[in-house]
Amino acid sequence: MLGVVLWADIDDRKAVIWCEDHGNLAYYTAAEQNVHEGIDLDAGDLIQFDLREDRDVRRARNLRRVDAGYAPTIVHELRNRGPRGSSTAENVVCFPEARRAG
């Protein structure tokens, strides 16, 4: 699965990821992984990962950064969308049409 990092805490090595399937957000915690598998993430990074669903939580594992800074304004764009209850068309934020490293 591909996703864009919406929030990351470098010290705690945690992140919240917006998934390309537009399902629920995925959560990443490096503590759940082998110490050598964790990577430092920043908001806007495009990553590829394995998705595991635990009850009501989606968890990202085996992360690989595809493109650092892929969507640098994504958090700003999401914050500035219309208020809840606006039409869906006004609230849709698409994955950027930027390059995908291969």
Rank of each mutant, 00 (worst) to 15 (best):
A68Q: 09
G69R: 00
N91T: 11
E37P: 00
V93M: 01
V16W: 02
I47P: 02
A26S: 15
G82T: 09
N91L: 12
V75L: 10
D12Q: 09
E53F: 05
I47F: 07
I74G: 01
I10V: 14
W18C: 01
L25D: 01
L6P: 04
H76Q: 15
I39A: 07
A15Q: 05
R59L: 12
V35P: 14
R99L: 08
R59W: 09
A60H: 07
A71R: 02
G102D: 14
D21E: 04
R64E: 13
D21L: 02
D67F: 12
R81H: 05
S87I: 11
R100F: 14
P96I: 04
D11P: 13
D42K: 15
A31W: 14
D12T: 10
H22S: 09
R61K: 10
P96L: 03
A98C: 09
H36E: 08
G44V: 03
D56P: 00
R52I: 15
A43F: 00
D67A: 09
P83V: 12
R79Y: 00
R65V: 15
F95I: 10
Q48M: 07
G23L: 01
L46C: 01
A8H: 07
D45G: 06
R100K: 08
R99F: 09
T29R: 15
E32A: 12
V5Q: 01
A60L: 12
R100M: 11
L46V: 01
L25K: 04
R100C: 06
G102C: 13
G3Y: 05
D67W: 09
R100I: 15
N62T: 05
D67H: 12
E20P: 04
G85R: 10
G85S: 10
R81G: 06
G3R: 03
R58I: 07
S86L: 04
R99K: 13
E37R: 00
E32V: 00
A8N: 07
L2S: 03
P83L: 12
Y28S: 02
A89G: 11
F49T: 05
D21F: 05
V75M: 06
D11I: 08
G38P: 03
A15M: 06
D54H: 10
V4A: 02
I17Q: 03
W18G: 00
G102T: 14
R59H: 13
H22K: 11
V16C: 04
D50P: 09
D45W: 05
D42G: 12
L51G: 11
K14L: 13
E37G: 00
V75Q: 07
G85M: 09
L63E: 05
C94M: 08
E97L: 15
V16D: 01
E97M: 14
C94L: 12
P83W: 09
R99Y: 08
